[in-house]
Every structure is written in C-alpha cells, then in structure tokens.
Amino acid sequence: MSRSKISILYLYPYEMNTYGDWGNVLVLQKRLEWRDYAVEVIEHRPGDKLTKRPDIIFFGGGQDSGQGLILSDLNKHARRLHDWINDGVATLAICGGYQLLGHEFITATGESLEGVGVFDITTRAESGRLIGNVVLTSDEFGTVVGFENHSGRTYLQSGMKSFGGVEKGGGNNGEDKKEGILYKSAIGTYLHGPLLPKNPQVADWLIARALGVSNKELVQLSDRFVDQARAVITAR
C-alpha cells in the first residue's frame, strides 16, 4: 500500500553540495521509500519559485563561491523559509546551510552576509579550520558521529539548545563544547560524513517529525552495516 507523497525540498543542490552532503537527501528518500512512502525531491535552484510548503527541507554546505551564487535568491525566500521552519517543518541544514539559516555570517574579509535568521546564531570566519572526526552525545539522539571541516565559528544565543555536546572534535566554535542547534523540528550542524547514513536515528527523527508520528510508530529497518561503520569512528 502506498501512502501520500512526502516532499523533500532540496535547497541549491548544485551550488551548495560538498562532502557528499546530498547523501543525506538520499538517506531520507530511501528510508521513506523502504517504509512504502512515495517521495518527491524538489530541487530548488537560484531563480526558481518557492511556493509549496514541503514536508522536509534540506540545505547543504557549499564552498564560498557557491554561497555567493545563492545569497540573493536565499534573501528573496528568507521570509517564507523562516516561517516554515518556525512552524515546525522538519529541516536539516549542514555547514554553510546551517550558517545561512542564522542571523549573519561574517566572512574572513569582515563582510557581513545576512542569513535567514531563523536560527538564533551568529557565525564568523576564522583562519584556522576545524577538521576531523567528531563524536557528540545528546538526549534525543544518543551518540552522533560525523566529520567536520569548517573555518566558521558559530555561537548560539542564550537559551538555544545545541544538537549535541562535543565528546570529540571542535563543534560550533572549538570553545564551548557545543555542536549545532536543535530548534523545533530543525537541526543545524557542521557534521558531514554525510551525517544521516551513520546516524539513522537522526534521519528517523526528521522523518517522524515530517510524518507527524512518534519515532516508535516508524517501521524498524534492518540497518545491516551502521553499527560497524559507527564503531570505526567512536573507537578512535
């Protein structure tokens, strides 16, 4: 039996796509399809219209040049994205996408790029990059593993909840032992890897939010290789 179609809005798939981030979209799509949901991935490129409220939003990381290509389009749609995320649309934003959902990003040259402003964060670029394997722990997701590679230092405003506490790695800024943000049904994070293949609990949390069900109501999947793939990172 096929149920209603789930839509995934994939923001700037060509401009903001590095470190295999698109794999997150693949994981969301497959885990829905394996549970008999039909999935529609809507690729949004600069200049495209953005009208239909999606079930899930994905916004990946990009190079500086990629960010330059999308900024004016993002500003055009900022209000709508802001409202959707505030209204509880399941969202995953990685690295550049995470930064641009915040208030502002201050570049290495001191220029301020205005973000969507839905995440209560600010980011500034610094010369040293935080690069390496990361292990987080959180109440919602248990242990989360990934790989970070960023020069931006992000600071959560007071009262904002992080995606996880840093056990290993740099995290948001290399100082406060926090990584990412968890806001309503949205996650912002620096974790590549990509994030979702090795953290299916995070993928299923987003899916449950999108479907409006609890995690327990989701059909369990076999996930044959996940435990061993995670073990490689946590063992180091």
Partner: peptide
C-alpha cells in the same frame, strides 16, 4: 579495508 563498512553502507543506499 579500514572503512569497509562505510562503503557497504553507501552500496546499501
């Protein structure tokens, strides 16, 4: 290889 399971996961998807 040392990341065999990452490859396996990729192939699964």
């Amino acid at each position: 290889g040392s990341r065999a399971y990452d490859m396996a996961l990729r192939l699964e998807y």
